[in-house]
Design a protein around this nucleic acid. Structure first.
Lengths: 126, 126
DNA sequence: ATCACTTATATGCAAAATGCACATATAGGT
DNA sequence: ACCTATATGTGCATTTTGCATATAAGTGAT
């Protein structure tokens, strides 16, 4: 069993939360994949870092779905960057995600409540 | 796009959260799959209901891992039931899950904070 | 006794999600 | 020429998932 850095708890892997974090980052300001990987760390836990493959694929998928749009920028130094910008539809999706996340927080808190209730009961009898 | 009952937000499907909920239910008291499907609803959102296939498979997997143990009970009316009981190792896993969930709540709250900050800024300028 | 229904456990399988390794290319420094 | 940092992607095996289906035992009605 390994529960520290690479834990067996499957529910909340980084990637599952990647989409809304990308949308939020882009809502704050337009950005490209490589930069987003850095900006995403704000939403991750200490040791985590986002998978580049997944970041780029998720951005492409969201563009396909019309949630973001992109354009190449070659003026700056270094390799060309694909700058992503949130669309109106993307803003809607982000709002829905936020509502979804709020409900999930309540759900997780209900779980913790029940767990802590059980702990207290255990103390009383033990 | 469909965001109501069957939403595109992938991060928090019922099943991803199934394992810790099952462990918690069993920590409260031993139970069998069919009953657990009812008891699980306490941890789900309104319209959700757990997939039977996944419930049974998850229970079997957890038994394989030594987190729960099971025995057949045929005395009661109706078909035989496989009663699952949390093991010592299962209790440990549940505790680790609870810690994990606590961290995830913080993470989700950070997301919501940033989202709401953005909303407030939007209001000021708009 | 047979038919429908509820209880109860489980399998099959296609599709989606995931992790990790790898490929490609530009620019800057030494 | 070579290494590193920046930047964007692909390939692929494995895991997770949702949904449909199979199996079987008891219960109640006709």
């Amino acid at each position: 069993m390994c529960f520290s850095s690479h834990c067996e708890c499957p529910g909340f892997r980084v990637e599952r939360f990647l989409q809304p974090c990308l949308l939020l980052c882009l809502a704050i300001r337009s950005s490209h994949g490589y930069e987003l990987m850095e900006r995403l760390k704000h939403f991750l836990l200490e040791d985590e870092s986002p998978d580049p493959g997944l970041v780029y694929r998720t951005l492409r998928k969201m563009e396909e779905d019309g949630w973001v749009s992109s354009e190449w920028v070659t003026e700056a130094s270094g390799p060309a960057k694909r700058i992503y910008t949130l669309t109106g539809e993307g803003k809607t999706v982000l709002r829905l995600w936020a509502e979804h996340v709020r409900r999930q927080v309540l759900r997780l808190q209900r779980f913790l409540e029940e767990y802590e209730k059980l702990q207290r009961e255990g103390e009383h009898h033990g």
